[in-house]
Design a protein around this nucleic acid. Sequence first.
DNA 1: AAATAAATTTAGACAAATCTAAAAATAATT
DNA 2: AATTATTTTTAGATTTGTCTAAATTTATTT
Lengths: 221, 221
Amino acid sequence: MITSTEEDYIKAIFNISQSGKRELVGTNQIAEQMSTTAASVTDMLRKLSNKEMILYEKYKGVKLSPSGTAKAMSLLRKHRLWESFLVEKLGFAWDEVHDIAEQLEHIQSLELVDRLDKYLGYPKFDPHGDPIPDPHGTITIRNQIVLSTMEDESVGIVVGVKKHDKDFLHHLNQVGINIGTEIKLIHKYSYDQSIKLLVNNKEEALLTSKVCENIFLKKIK
Amino acid sequence: MITSTEEDYIKAIFNISQSGKRELVGTNQIAEQMSTTAASVTDMLRKLSNKEMILYEKYKGVKLSPSGTAKAMSLLRKHRLWESFLVEKLGFAWDEVHDIAEQLEHIQSLELVDRLDKYLGYPKFDPHGDPIPDPHGTITIRNQIVLSTMEDESVGIVVGVKKHDKDFLHHLNQVGINIGTEIKLIHKYSYDQSIKLLVNNKEEALLTSKVCENIFLKKIK
DNA sequence: AAATAAATTTAGACAAATCTAAAAATAATT
DNA sequence: AATTATTTTTAGATTTGTCTAAATTTATTT
Ligand SMILES: [Mn+2]
Ligand SMILES: [Mn+2]
Ligand SMILES: [Mn+2]
Ligand SMILES: [Mn+2]
């Protein structure tokens, strides 16, 4: 048996190892991600190591084992399918679904998630543009660039976001940006890397570099 | 905060007080329903009493407080709406959904359950014929009689079942009985109170008295 | 009413997940 | 290389939910 707390730690380890450059994930990194203490993390790492979900050497750091990786993919699949359900079928906004999916991802039944997948028409991406793993844990890779690396006059479609917190997504709502939004880059100010852009050929918007680093686009011009 | 374990105890207390005759529910009854020991139940009763979810006098038994009753209705609402979703939208059979709903009922968001209700078209009854409380905890009462009390030659439509375990429901599947099935009572044998009946004007079936005591009908003839 | 049976509570222990404070190991500076 | 800083682990507690075994209370029989 694996508890839902253990599942959240596995997800945290996976997310950190994806975003970061290092092979091994550190105790403090996990503690920050899970909003807990390093001591608690060490306790949990011992447990996850005993259950062979992670490869763990004291003081060196951890990485997911093959079964830990499979577990992480299963959790991402469930999380993202539930988010898709909440937005597509129940009409939630993309900034309202993360916390609910954080609970729904721990519902056990595999039959349930497969039926949900079918009911949604086997979506490939969730409401934040994140890829949804198939039942075998395979993910569709997408060609994307980060908004902060685009050049003046170039045009793209928003296909994803790096951060998922409510505040960030709500800010994007306010400037009219969502998945599928067309963006034309008017000018990047060299002083602070902030970007002026045209949203859906209508509204102008100014985004700080911090925001632009967290938006993915498919370049179309 | 209230844990999902506490929620399951509240549901158990509600269910026992509904089915039984006594006003107060006993420790052993709860222990049996929850598949745990009397000592564990006593521990939990103290906790639920401190949180004012139950009225508890040592050695006397317990009943739900007003807020405990409200919590129980909220849980029944969630459980039954999720069961309806699983059957109506995802195509599960009525004997497959109970255990999954047992987990889904603990998802916190009230917004979620209200949107689910709307998405399902505000159903009044779940796949087992149990009434679904509205957001205020109000329940639609249905006129129903128990199959074992019907007389020879009378006809009725199955509107509900008292037991919800997989084995019982699967047995009903095998003899062709579901919610909405028309049943004509051919003969009740006085020897053991077993009943021979005609299912949907087609198949004959013989049910033991134990089974007949757990089927509710609306009499139509 | 006394004795016996049943139901319930208490006592004491354990595993899971967490915490603070202290110790140990590793990394970075001087 | 020695010192300082950072990271990580250990030690010792706490809370939640559980258990077994023993004590207590209530109910039932004789
Ligand atoms: Mn989670
Ligand atoms: Mn997402
Ligand atoms: Mn439950
Ligand atoms: Mn039901």
